[in-house]
Design a protein around this nucleic acid. Sequence first.
DNA 1: TCTGGGGTCCTAGGACCC
DNA 2: TCTGGGGTCCTAGGACCC
Length: 453
Amino acid sequence: MFETHVSEAMGSEANASGAADGPALAAGERIALVDVNNFYVSCERVFDPRLEGRPVVVLSNNDGCVVSRSEEAKRLGIKTGAPWFQLAPQAQRWGLVARSSNYELYGDMSARVMEVLGRFGTWQEVYSIDESFLGVAGDEARLRTEGGRIRDAVRRLVGVPVCVGIAPTKTLAKFANHIAKRNPGMDGVCSLGSLPRGEAERIQSRVPVTGLWGVGPRTGKRLNALGIETVADLRAADPLAIRKRFSVVLQRTVLELNGTPCIPHAEERADKQQVMFSRSFAVPVSTLEEMDQVMAVYAQKGAARLAAEGMRAAVVSVSAGTSRFSAGVESAPAASVALPSPTQDPIVLTRAAVGAMRGRMVPGVPYVRAGVLFSGLSRADAAGEQAMLEPFAEERNESGIADVLGAVRAKFGEAAIGLGQGGLAEPAAWTMKREFSSPRYTTEWADLPVARA
DNA sequence: TCTGGGGTCCTAGGACCC
DNA sequence: TCTGGGGTCCTAGGACCC
């Protein structure tokens, strides 16, 4: 019974012989985790070198709160999630610079970083907008050098600084990366196997367990109650006991800390399971008419993403909410509707979203955010088979309008065309605030930076 | 005046089936 | 008094990540 659990937990990539005693590593394949330091801020600095050496923050949508900080901003004690309106009064005194988030720029810079990283791996798994796992091989001396090459290549070809962590499992690679970040003497590269004997263990006995990938504040509290405070404590815990008390996820963490890889890597990215468009408003929305408008616009934004993914949705869910920070009436309307058949048709999706929200919201109550979620996704190119199975489905005759809208937007811009309330030429009052936005340097001809010598 | 958005995976529990 | 057992599928909610 228990053996079954262990083998399940280890997954198909399991390597029982890899359960070495701690990170005393043998030669063979290793995993590198490379991520960009302070990614959004670093992207802004590539195109505006005046930001070097200054405290800089990038703000969330609506210029709400801090999502990326330069080292100088961290030193000022600014925390991730800090609301901008609380920082703004001190900004001038501190010399603090704020930028609105510019996802078009970051997305393009991410693609460039990933392309360069891909040159160095026997395999690559892009894990997030700013980090990637890579397969690397060789003896310790070579791994260390290779890490330095990766760091230099990204700096030279894309312009952003990265850190590299190298180890036999993903969890340990993340941990090595964490060490590289906190020890400037390492020049941004840490291969666990190159550390002096006993050094990795010493660090593990100092880092709190919540410093690990996959261990958040909740799990951290429960672990502390059992006397498991540090990474070293968790590494020494019994994996089966951990599975029984917690979950298979944490059991994998324990095994990975001991050098046994159990998190399989997805060679190609799996299809998305949901597509969401959700935003808070610049000013609250409290009328039925405005909420109709919001739903129409959000559904079309989501539909465009769905079409870009080549997916169709079977379920449309909508939600809205009042402010968590105000004492007024609380209201959180939400509804889901199943569509007669999966579709990517923006007309069908928009009608469903508007219809689902109508009658749920309370007029007069100030809503500060809303969202549209598409789920039950399937690939659009499987539509033919589906049609044969469901000859009487009503929405079979997709209008092809998703393609038309996409083509018009690509040629004439985002605001060029829309359905119904989504076709507003002037942005409505509730649309997002972005006061400190940088240009789309790399994706818009008009925004191309000009250098003068 | 002002506090983000978009995902994933796992688990528990209910509905339903034979 | 006493009411099977085993399986699947689906959903909601929790926890986490960046």
